[in-house]
Structures are given as structure tokens and as C-alpha cells.
Design a protein around this nucleic acid. Structure first.
Length: 579
RNA sequence: GCGUUCGUAGCUCAAUGGAUAGAGCAUCUGACUUCGGAUCAGAGGGUUGGGGGUUCGAGUCCCUCCGAGCGCGCCA
């Protein structure tokens, strides 16, 4: 409804400024969806007090002066002073025809193009990816797609954990196994086993512990052979990550990998620059910054530790180096951190220090795209039967396998090869959609039954609606492209409901993007599918009364399918044509 | 203790400060010679954790209390 709304808002503003020239500050001319009409405008309610009249009277006065011919067929005053709008059917048809010609389906481009750095996924080298990585990866991927869709310049950064003390232990374990055997074990994808073995040895054998410590020193000292072994670990892990990303269907590739180690050279610079701006304080042998507004248990200032007592750096330093790198080298204007809620204080401290140090200045900004945990049916963090974290690949494989079984049962005619392909789209889509469809800040309960259900706010339901439309076209004898030239008539009640919803796609995509809330797009798509289903029941397409009606309805079908597929694509979910 | 997030139907979740708080699941009632019934139509189900406040208007903003999760100095 973006363009509809824009034009209405403009005309209302004109009328209001003419009627009440002294009260035009902070006008709420927004055109909102309404249950009582096609849309409502509440401008009179806020205006009433300023002009000393009743809201109802103000609404009447505006309504009397308002000329919406060609856009609205009816404008009425209702309730305490709402302006209820009913759009003109012909105008709706024209609008639909216009966006049908637009490859972006009416979604407008960003007026100022941002350089958006999105930090997400972030698995650890030599460790298995588990459910804990699911949300960051899926939400981050959706944000990448949405940003790209409106024309922003997007830089994906996968900040993998590839540095730090655990690597002494991991490298020594690699040496013990022998490089060839170790590489083979890692390439199988059994990172969990590798890490656990190393950990077990570290805890059990003092001799191993000592070797591990020395190895850390060698690693940090740049010993050539140690670095070679380290790179082997990183390479094998990266290959493994790539297979997981492929399975999950996200856009991350090897070129997006940007491990913590990349920033090593920048760490001394961080210290120097903080010292130069007099932010650095020596406290208890460590070099720290005390950003304002943070306190610890004892209510004393909470430090951000830049350099530890032993001279080593920690993750705060790396994160600050990241900010410098992203702002000064990449020229980021917006940095998104798709990181769990528990990190919020840490990121807030990073942001404060980066601002205090002058590295982060308007209009450049960073945002913590925080999200809650994935819970089991017991409402606790999701764990496997054995109490360990659930491996991401196993979870994804199970999703595909469950989807496959479901399709086999419900559509046995589908050829096996096709079925496997569709099962992947549905299974992975279901997992992603379950992750994206709730407000990201909240925890959500992982439930196979619900996410794979064909009823309710699920990916399969949306995909089904899409497949049904494709089915109509297979029988219609017309192509999707041909359908686009027709202008829908938009006269039946459910045609109107569908049309009005389609026209809101633009504003919904932007709303979801600006709030970094993919679930708003999900809610919209679900409602779209629901409205389509009602239309489908009540308005025969192929058996319509006339060719004109039929063509118009085919155009509506095509648009609906495109918005569904486009919206799902923004969420990283595929839309099969049959299922 | 301090900070932070959350609390909405039996369950899982929605709701740019706007009208009578909406969906799905589950329960109950209907609709299959019908473009994919993998669907649709309808019913019941609520003191939005409690209490104050701001506002023409509060689930939403502010304060306070209760409950839950998470974080709070040398791991990342």
C-alpha cells in the first residue's frame, strides 16, 4: 500500500495545512491497515487538542475538504474521529498491474545506499556446529538478503573462532594423531570427537598440558611449522563449515570467513590508540578501559579488559579491532552483530568504548541484532538425549528426512528424485521459518511437529499455497508472464482483501528490515497465504464467469505466487512448484 | 546485589500509542461430482503477571512490586 499511502498522506497534509496552518507539527498522517475499512487515518485525533475542537469535528472538516477521487471510492468518519478509507477498485487494479511489471514487486530501493557489514554465524575452528549457531546463521542470512534486496552494499563477515589458548591443545592432538590421520578425521566432519579427545588429554595428562602451553607460545610467536599445522586445522574446519552452509542454504562462503586471527596485527594498534586518547588505565596489572555506565557486583566501575596481566589480548580487543577495520578499511556505515542476547552487555561496552575513542561516529552506527535461545520441550536449552548440544547437521538431516516421509505419505506420485529435492526445500525451510517467524528477542521452543505442519504459520503452509498457484498455471494454458499484462478487476470481497495485502509488500519488507525483524515478513506472508486461500475458495479462476475475470484472477494468482516466493527467498527459503 | 530481556487464550505465538487484543494447535460444528481437502467456513476459550502514572486513547511508554531467563574483571 506504499504508493497508495504516500499519495493519500500527501493530500491529507495539504488539506490539514490549509485548514489548520498553526498546528502542522508532528502530524500523524500515517495510513494504517484497518479492520473496519481498507485503511484508516488518525490525524484528527492528535490534531483536536491543538485546534481546540473535538476529534470528530476535525475529522469531519478534513473529510469535507479532502479530495481523493481516483484513489478512494469512499471516505467516512467513524468512532472518535477516524477517517476510514475505501480504495477505488479500478485504482487497486491499476496499482496491481503496475507492480506486476516491477521485478521487485513494488519494493522501493534504498534512497541512501548503506555499506552494511553483517557479522553472523561465527562457529569455532575444530568444533562442531550445533544448534547454538542456527539462529545467528539463519537470521544473519535473512538480513543479508533483505539488505541486498533494497540495494544496500552488503559485506558478510563470518567471525570464526580460530585463535586463542585452545589451539595449543588442538595442534598437539593433531601432532599426536599424525597429520594425515588427523586431516582424515576432520574431513569426515567429526569435529566434536577431535575436540573432545584433545580436551580429555589436556585434562588428564600434565605432560600434554605442558606441550599445549608451549605450543600456544609458539603459535603466538609465529613459529612456521606451528602456523602450518594451525592452518591445516583452519582449512579442514572451513571445508566442513562450507558443507554445513551448503546444506543449510545460506549465502556464506569461504570468502566471508574472517577469523579472529585476522586482527592480530591490529591489536597493538588498539592499545596504542586507546592510550593516546587517555582511555587506557592500568588496573590490577591489566590494561583496561572503564566505559561510563557499567558496574560490577560490587557496584564499582566495570572494566573492558584490553590487555591481560600476562600481556595477552582477549576478545574485547579483537572486537574493537573489528570496529576499526570495518569503519576505516571497509567504510561500513552500518554494522550488524547477529549475536545472542547474553552478549548484549559486552557489545554495549564495545560500542561505548568505540565511540569514546572516536572510531564510531555518526552517521556510522552499530546495532546488536540480539536473539533468544532455542529451547527443548522442557523449556530449557535444547540438548540431545545424551545431554550434549545437538549437532546442526544431524538436526538438518532429520528435518529433510521428516519432510521426505511426509511428502511420500501425502503425494506418493511424486518421482523419488523430485521428492528428495522438494524434501530438502521443505525440511530446511521449516527449520529456518520456525527460527525466523517469532520475535527474535524471545526464546522459542523447537518442535518438529509444529514446524513441519501444513497448517498454521509454517513454511510448508506457505510453500503449499505457492505450489497450488503453480498448479493452476500448469492447467491454465497461459504462462505466468502472459498473465501479468492483465489488470485485475478487484471486485469480489476476497479479491479486494488479497489485493490490498499484496500492495503492502513494499512497506512490510522495509518495516522488517528497519527493525531487523524477519518475523514481521513471516507474519505478512502467512496472512497473504491465508487471504489467497480464501480467494481460492470463493473465486474460481479457470472456471471464472468471463475471460476478463479469469485473466484478472490469473494476474492476481501470479502476483501472489511471486510475492510468496520473493518473500520466502528473502528469508532464505525456497518455493517448490510441486510438493 | 546491580544490569538486562521476557511475562498475552489450555499450548505455541502475533499485535508502527489507535476502535470490540488477533492467529495456529487442541476441542466442538459444518463443507468433498469442486482450479491440489496437504484445504476452507464457523463456535467456544482473555482482568494482556499485580498495582500506580502519562495520554483524547496503553498489551505497547514511565514508576513500582511479583515471577522466569541471561549477564556481571583477566575464556570467547
Amino acid at each position: 500500500m506504499a504508493d497508495l499511502a504516500a499519495e493519500v498522506m500527501e493530500r491529507i497534509t495539504t488539506v490539514v495545512t490549509r485548514l489548520y496552518p498553526s498546528a502542522t507539527d508532528g502530524l500523524d498522517t500515517a495510513v494504517r491497515p484497518s479492520e473496519r475499512a481498507d485503511a484508516q487515518v488518525n490525524v484528527a485525533l492528535g490534531l483536536a487538542r491543538k485546534v481546540g475542537k473535538s476529534p470528530r469535528q476535525v475529522a469531519e472538516e478534513i473529510s469535507a475538504e479532502l479530495d481523493l477521487r481516483g484513489i478512494c471510492s469512499k471516505v467516512s468518519v467513524a468512532g472518535p474521529g477516524f477517517l476510514n478509507l475505501t480504495f477505488d477498485n479500478g485504482h487497486l487494479g491499476t496499482m496491481l498491474r503496475d507492480i506486476a511489471k516491477d521485478p521487485h514487486l513494488g519494493v522501493h530501493r534504498a534512497t541512501t545506499v548503506e555499506t552494511v557489514v553483517i557479522d553472523y554465524s561465527a562457529p569455532n575452528v575444530a568444533k562442531e556446529m550445533h544448534v547454538g549457531h542456527l539462529r545467528s546463521t539463519v537470521i544473519g542470512d535473512a538480513l543479508v538478503r533483505m539488505c541486498e534486496a533494497v540495494g544496500h552494499r552488503v559485506i558478510r563477515e563470518n567471525h570464526i573462532g580460530d585463535w586463542g589458548t585452545p589451539f595449543g591443545m588442538l595442534i598437539e592432538h593433531l601432532v599426536d594423531l599424525g597429520e594425515v590421520d588427523a586431516a582424515r578425521e576432520l574431513s569426515v566432519g567429526d569435529l566434536d570427537g577431535f575436540y573432545k579427545q584433545a580436551r580429555a588429554k589436556f585434562e588428564a595428562a600434565p605432560e600434554f598440558q605442558e606441550r599445549a602451553r608451549q605450543r600456544v607460545v609458539m603459535l603466538q610467536g609465529g613459529d612456521a611449522d606451528t602456523l602450518r599445522l594451525w592452518k591445516l586445522l583452519v582449512a579442514e574446519s572451513s571445508r566442513y563449515f562450507a558443507t554445513v552452509y551448503e546444506k543449510l542454504g545460506v549465502k556464506l562462503t569461504d570468502t566471508d570467513l574472517r577469523g579472529e586471527s585476522v586482527y592480530n596485527d591490529l591489536l597493538p594498534t588498539v592499545v596504542d590508540r586507546l592510550r593516546a586518547s587517555n582511555l587506557l588505565v592500568t588496573d590490577d596489572g591489566a590494561e583496561v578501559v572503564f566505559p561510563a555506565g557499567f558496574t560490577n557486583r560490587e557496584n564499582s566501575p566495570l572494566p573492558l579488559i584490553i590487555r591481560k596481566q600476562d600481556g595477552g589480548y582477549n576478545y574485547a580487543t579483537t572486537d574493537l579491532a573489528c570496529v576499526i577495520d570495518r569503519v576505516e578499511r571497509l567504510h561500513a556505515t552500518l554494522m550488524l552483530y547477529v549475536v545472542g542476547t547474553p552478549q548484549s552487555q559486552h557489545l554495549s561496552m564495545i560500542e561505548t568504548v568505540a565511540k569514546d575513542a572516536g572510531w564510531l561516529r555518526e552517521p556510522v552506527r552499530m546495532a546488536h541484532v540480539a536473539f533468544g535461545s532455542v529451547l527443548g520441550s522442557d523449556r530449557k536449552m535444547l540438548k540431545s538425549r545424551t545431554g550434549e548440544s545437538v549437532k546442526l547437521v544431524e538436526l538438518l538431516d532429520e528435518a529433510v528426512q521428516r519432510a521426505d516421509a511426509s511428502i511420500l505419505e501425502k503425494n506418493p506420485e511424486l518421482p523419488a528424485a523430485e521428492r528428495r529435492n522438494v524434501a530438502r526445500m521443505i525440511g530446511i525451510g521449516a527449520v529456518k521459518y520456525a527460527d525466523l517467524s517469532g520475535d527474535r528477542i524471545k526464546d522459542y521452543v523447537f518442535d518438529w511437529e509444529r514446524m513441519l505442519s501444513f497448517d498454521g504459520n509454517t513454511a510448508p503452509y506457505l510453500q503449499y499455497a505457492h505450489a497450488r498457484i503453480c498448479s493452476i498455471f500448469r492447467r491454465s494454458g497461459t504462462t505466468r508472464e502472459e498473465a501479468r499484462s492483465a489488470t485485475p478487476l478487484v471486485s469480489h470481497q476476497s479479491e479486494r482483501a488479497l489485493a490490498l495485502w499484496i500492495l503492502q509488500y513494499d512497506s512490510v519488507v522495509w518495516d522488517a528490515l528497519e527493525r531487523y525483524s524477519p518475523h514481521r515478513l513471516c507474519t505478512y506472508l502467512y496472512e497473504l497465504a491465508t487471504r489467497y486461500s480464501a480467494f481460492y475458495e470463493q473465486c474460481p479462476v479457470l472456471k471464472a464467469e468471463s475471460d476478463t475475470i479469469r485473466d484478472g484472477r490469473l494476474a492476481l494468482c501470479d502476483l501472489t505466487a511471486r510475492v510468496l516466493a520473493d518473500g520466502l527467498q528473502l528469508l532464505g527459503i525456497d518455493s517448490p512448484e510441486q510438493m
